[in-house]
């Protein structure tokens, strides 16, 4: 199984994992075969679960097509950035720089959810 399949396999089992370089200790996201910083090997680690909103947008869509929804980029405490969905917060209330914490995995087991606040 390649790292992409492993990542989604983790999600299917309810586990959010990122990678860490065995050589230079860089956190790596999205999952790869080798560290993009140094070429070293990578191991799976459980992230601390905290992050900060780097940026966000609201996609405007008619109610009959599902209505507005938000997309955000989160800077994880480990130093990597990822796209994510923010829950428990109206898209209009998402602020850049806002602390967020891990809130689980989306229902299709292919998205990561965060909610406002420091508490995990």
């Amino acid at each position: 199984m390649g790292p992409q399949a492993e990542y989604f396999d983790h999600l299917a089992r309810g586990q959010f994992r990122i990678q860490r370089c065995d050589d230079c200790a860089s956190a790596v996201f999205y999952p790869r075969t080798h560290c993009p910083e140094c070429g070293g090997g990578l191991s799976w680690v459980e992230p601390a679960g905290t992050g900060v909103v780097y940026s966000a947008t609201i996609i405007r869509q008619a109610p009959e097509r599902g209505g507005d929804y938000g997309v955000a980029l989160i800077d994880l405490a480990e130093g990597v950035r990822m796209m994510a969905r923010i829950i428990d917060c109206a898209p209009e209330d998402v602020r850049i720089g806002m602390p967020v914490s891990y809130a689980g995995i989306g229902s299709n087991a292919d998205t990561i959810l965060y909610r406002p606040g420091d508490a995990t």
């Binding site: 996201f29 999205y30 997309v71 994510a84 969905r85 299709n108 292919d110």
Partner: peptide, 9 residues
């Protein structure tokens, strides 16, 4: 696969 599921436009 790390962006499409969030449906960015």
């Amino acid at each position: 696969p790390y962006e499409y599921p969030y449906e960015p436009l």
